[in-house]
Simulated assay, not measured.
Amino acid sequence: MFFSIIIPLYNRPQEIDELLYTLSKQSYMQFEVLVIEDGSKNDAKAIVAKYAHQLDIQYYYKENEGQGFTRNYGFARAKGDYFVVFDSDCLIPEDYLETVANYLLEHKLDAYGGPDAAHASFSPVQKAISYAMTSPFTTGGIRGNAKHVGQFHPRSFNMGVSREVWETVGGFILTRLGEDIEYSIRIHEAGFKIGLIPAAKVYHKRRTSFLQFYKQLHFFGRARINIYKHFPKELKLVHFFPAAFTVGFVFTLILNVIYPPLAYICDAVIVLIFLLIFFHSWMLNKSLKVAFLSIIAAFIQLTAYGLGFIQDLIKRIVLNKND
């Protein structure tokens, strides 16, 4: 089984260096790497060239179109039986491709996704963000989880599709705003088999600051409405939870000002949620600092996603306006 690893890149030369280093250490070496520079001003051509003797690697530079269409550019030039997509801010365990190859030979998936985790080298903020995106106490619990809600939709930081999927379904028709979910829905509808490979994890850095994390999650909230515009049935009750939390939190703040006795129950619920997050993160990460930061990360995740969701819900559905 031969893999083509597709990596869209935009102004992140340091990240691609670290990612390529981890790929050079793979125990399974039947793969090529295609790095697609998406109109970057700070390109990584020289860094990619360092790995020419360690990897079967190609570097392409194209005009900026966004990550979805950039992946399509790589798909069209790939030679593999499977096309594997990574975000440039991932680190790949040494046994990743070996794990995927063995699983695909046994289970015959047409497309797959895998979970993400925090690497030991990550900063406390990055570990807290990783916790927020994978915790059962936030909406992150449905990402890369074997007990996910509804159909499993691989996420583009760690996903793969067979050549047959590419030749039958094509590639991404959205370049951002939920493009990976939209793509996996079309793969499902075409009758292909999609599954989670639980052991095929990557270490996903995500964002290095809470401000960057807020912007990313606000974007994710907007993306969910974009998916709804294409596939109304894919909007589930769980997707409203961050918006409900956000509205509830604002309502609680107002109650605390105008009539505190009515706010006690709401205050208690919010405190309970944060305590659960704190102790669960402490148990997993063995760090009080990461546990405390996990409360901040979870709050940002819920409110940023919720505000983005509410913004585009009002704009694109209630007011029926498009960008």
Rank of each mutant, 00 (worst) to 15 (best):
M1V: 11
S4R: 05
L9Q: 12
L19P: 12
L19E: 09
Y21H: 09
L23V: 08
S24H: 02
Q26S: 11
M29H: 13
M29N: 10
E32C: 03
L34P: 03
G39L: 11
G39S: 12
A44E: 05
A44P: 04
A44Y: 05
H53L: 14
Q54T: 11
D56R: 13
Y60L: 07
Y61H: 12
E65I: 12
G66L: 10
G66C: 13
Q67C: 09
F69A: 14
G74D: 07
G80W: 04
V84Y: 11
V84D: 03
D87F: 03
D87W: 04
P93V: 09
P93E: 10
Y96D: 00
V100H: 00
V100D: 03
V100P: 04
N102T: 08
L104T: 06
L104S: 09
K108L: 06
G113A: 01
P115L: 03
P115Y: 01
A120E: 13
S121A: 15
P124D: 08
I129E: 04
S130P: 00
P136C: 03
P136D: 04
T138A: 11
G141V: 11
G141Y: 10
R143K: 13
G144Y: 08
N145R: 07
N145K: 06
A146H: 02
G150L: 06
G150M: 06
F152L: 08
P154K: 00
S156K: 00
F157V: 03
S162K: 00
R163S: 05
R163M: 01
W166F: 07
V169T: 08
G170Q: 05
D180R: 01
I181W: 09
I181K: 10
E182V: 15
I187C: 12
I187M: 01
I197M: 09
A199L: 15
V202M: 02
H204R: 11
R206G: 00
F210M: 09
Q216H: 12
Q216G: 06
F219L: 08
G221K: 02
R224Q: 14
R224P: 01
I225W: 02
Y228K: 14
Y228L: 10
K229R: 09
H230A: 15
K233T: 08
H239F: 14
H239Y: 15
H239L: 13
F240Y: 13
A243S: 14
F245S: 02
F245C: 07
T246W: 03
F251D: 00
F251Y: 09
L253A: 07
I254Q: 04
N256G: 07
Y259D: 11
Y259L: 10
P261A: 06
Y264H: 12
I265M: 07
C266W: 14
D267K: 11
D267H: 10
I270G: 02
F274K: 03
F279R: 08
H280G: 06
H280Q: 13
S281Q: 05
L284V: 04
K286E: 15
S287I: 02
V290F: 04
F292M: 12
F292I: 15
L293F: 15
L293K: 03
I296R: 01
A298K: 02
F299N: 01
I300N: 06
L307F: 13
L307D: 01
K315R: 09
R316V: 08
L319N: 04
K321Y: 08
N322W: 09
D323L: 03
D323C: 02
D323W: 14
